[in-house]
């Protein structure tokens, strides 16, 4: 992983008068990334007001219109407004990206913490499963899971798609969480807590989990970028979101492939939307890592 996190000890978490201000000062690029993310969030939440057209409304009179005053980014073969579809597409991208990354990382963190804390057989069993899961390239695993689970939509989101994207994240987060936990378990204050007769629950909640918050946050942001990219790839292969739902990867796939040589705007803008979103999450994630992880700070 590009984001291999090392563990900060409890007191190494930045303690500053105003952490937000510090972040802005130290990590201007990260702030830039955050601003782009916020822009997408605004698009997703306010799509109804921002998008000039209904993203699913067919208007054959405007078929394959070039970008211009009427349609900022042009239209597709059904005469649907590309700009509006991108704005609404932010919903799909963010929902899938954020949810699958959070689910994957949370499950992974719990697994990893349990593995590291209990050690012994539990650790061994979990690690073997993690090894096996890590032997599949992400997209291969996701494609098999999509094929196995099919589609299950609720609240306008395909939950099986989220599961397929979250699953490959679990073992990676588990690895990181385990090594963080191991280094904490080795600390004297854990021994002390154990000696004092505190319950596992209390030790995990009070001492272990707070200490893996930093790697957790780093991984969550890093995987959001990857999840968005993976969703786009799956939709491109026809395995993700389905027409007429606006989704960026979908806008590059299927029959669009027949038209993009004559109507390049059909693929230029959605592709740029994906790139910018992933770029922003990466930028923010990198800065967050640098900021939370004192060892990497120069």
């Amino acid at each position: 992983m590009a984001t291999v996190a090392t563990t900060p000890s409890a007191d190494a978490l930045p303690k500053r008068a105003n952490p937000l201000w510090q972040f802005i000062k130290v990590q201007p690029l990260g702030v830039f990334g955050l601003l782009i993310i916020l822009l997408y969030v605004v698009c997703a939440l306010g799509a109804k007001w921002i998008a000039p057209y209904d993203p699913e409304a067919i208007d054959f009179a405007a078929m394959l219109a070039k970008p211009g005053e009427e349609h900022l980014f042009g239209t597709d073969q059904y005469g649907r407004d590309v700009f509006s579809r991108i704005v609404y597409g932010a919903r799909t991208a963010l929902a899938v990206g954020i949810l699958s990354s959070m689910f994957g990382c949370t499950l992974g963190a719990l697994l990893g913490a349990a593995s590291g804390y209990f050690g012994g057989r539990i650790d061994n069993a979990i690690q073997r499963v993690v090894d096996i899961m890590l032997s599949f390239p992400i997209i291969v695993l996701a494609m098999v899971v999509v094929a196995v689970l099919g589609k299950r939509a609720a609240l306008g989101i395909d939950w099986n798609l989220i599961a397929a994207i979250a699953l490959p994240i679990i073992p990676k987060m588990a690895r990181v969480a385990r090594s963080s936990t191991l280094s904490i378990v080795a600390m004297p204050f854990i021994d002390a807590a154990r000696a004092a007769g505190f319950s596992h629950k209390r030790i995990i909640l009070r001492h272990i989990l707070p200490n893996i918050v930093a790697p957790y946050l780093i991984m969550v942001t890093a995987f959001m970028a990857q999840a968005i990219l993976l969703e786009a790839s799956l939709s491109f292969l026809g395995l993700g979101v389905t027409e007429p739902t606006p989704a960026w990867g979908l806008m590059l796939s299927g029959t669009s492939a027949d038209f993009y040589q004559t109507a390049p705007w059909m693929i230029l803008f959605p592709g740029a939307a994906i790139t910018l979103a992933v770029f922003a999450f990466n930028l923010f994630g990198d800065s967050l890592r640098d900021w939370l992880d004192p060892k990497l700070k120069s």
């Binding site: 699913e56 409304a57 067919i58 073969q77 059904y78 026809g238 395995l239 389905t242 027409e243 007429p244 796939s253 299927g254 029959t255 492939a257 027949d258």
Partner: peptide
């Protein structure tokens, strides 16, 4: 089916018509 031609246009069109 998730076959682009001609299933997707047929689906997209019918849904729009019903709307």
């Amino acid at each position: 089916r998730n076959i682009p031609e001609p299933y997707t246009p047929a689906g997209v069109y019918s849904i729009d018509q019903w709307r």
